[in-house]
């Protein structure tokens, strides 16, 4: 096999025009996109937060809806990056042959994959900010530290975009992504403390939960919403970064193999 598949990524500033291209496409339907980023979390938070929350006692000293807000931020940013990296990324790579067009210019595959990750993370950033605005408007958090949610959204986006691109690199078609959402994303939502504290789970599931990236994202977001500096924050950031870097490298190797055929 070709050893150049495994060489380390080479970065250049040429990823920026690709990011701008995606932004230009996004701008054409920005209204629908922003509405989606706002409506989805609002519906969740209001429905579950007030509906279910009304029957629940406080969790860790906060009302259920405030507890849910931190989970929703992470859940939304994860989803934004995942959908972008899988469905939209696959469309650009395969269906529209956008990558093929770009590869005929001085831009390399390394630049393209990096731009996909940065772009998907940008969508996460937008999504995170949208939820945060809702949280502030609803008065669920008055924490100055909650501003740290903004860079956190970017980090969560980098993490899930990189991991998601592994699926994109392996996918024969769009149907393949159902496996990822059904077998990875949905269980993650239930295991990582979006809707209820992880401590409610049996010990075995708690162990699984502790290695999943969403758990670490929520471990950072929830204290920040409550104006508390998260415990072991370097560790949580490190895990998210490790997922991002590993996902980037593995997906890049897989894309190099796929596009050399």
């Amino acid at each position: 096999m070709n050893s150049s598949f495994y060489s380390l990524p080479q970065f250049s500033r040429r990823f920026i025009p690709i990011w701008k291209r995606n932004f230009m496409v996004w701008k054409k339907m920005a209204g629908a996109s922003v509405l989606g980023h706002l409506a989805d979390p609002v519906i969740y938070m209001l429905g579950l937060g007030y509906g279910l929350g009304g029957m629940l006692p406080q969790i860790n000293g906060m009302p259920y809806i405030a507890f849910l807000a931190a989970g929703t931020v992470c859940y939304s940013t994860m989803n934004s990056a995942s959908f972008e990296a899988l469905y939209s990324g696959f469309a650009r790579m395969h269906q529209q042959r956008t990558w093929e067009a770009i590869l005929n210019t001085p831009v390399t595959l390394d630049d393209i994959v990096f731009s996909e990750i940065v772009w998907a993370a940008s969508k996460s950033l937008l999504s995170g900010v949208a939820v945060l605005v809702v949280v502030w408007v609803l008065g669920l958090s008055h924490s100055p530290l909650s501003l740290w949610i903004i860079p956190l959204s970017l980090l969560v986006g980098l993490c899930f975009a990189s991991v998601g691109l592994i699926m994109t690199a392996l996918a024969p078609g769009y149907d393949f992504f159902m496996y990822y959402f059904t077998l990875v994303i949905t269980p993650m939502v239930l295991l990582c403390g979006v809707f209820f504290p992880v401590e409610q789970l049996p010990q075995a599931l708690q162990t699984i939960s502790s290695i999943l990236p969403l758990t670490h994202a929520i471990s950072l977001a929830r204290p920040l919403m409550n104006n508390v500096v998260p415990g072991q924050f370097l560790w949580h950031i490190g895990v998210l970064l490790a997922y991002a870097l590993t996902g980037f490298y593995v997906s890049l190797v897989l894309f190099r193999r796929r596009l050399s055929q």
């Binding site: 230009m24 496409v25 042959r97 956008t98 067009a101």
Partner: peptide
């Protein structure tokens, strides 16, 4: 094969 940007 055509790989123009259909959104543009």
């Amino acid at each position: 094969f055509d790989n123009l940007d259909p959104d543009f």
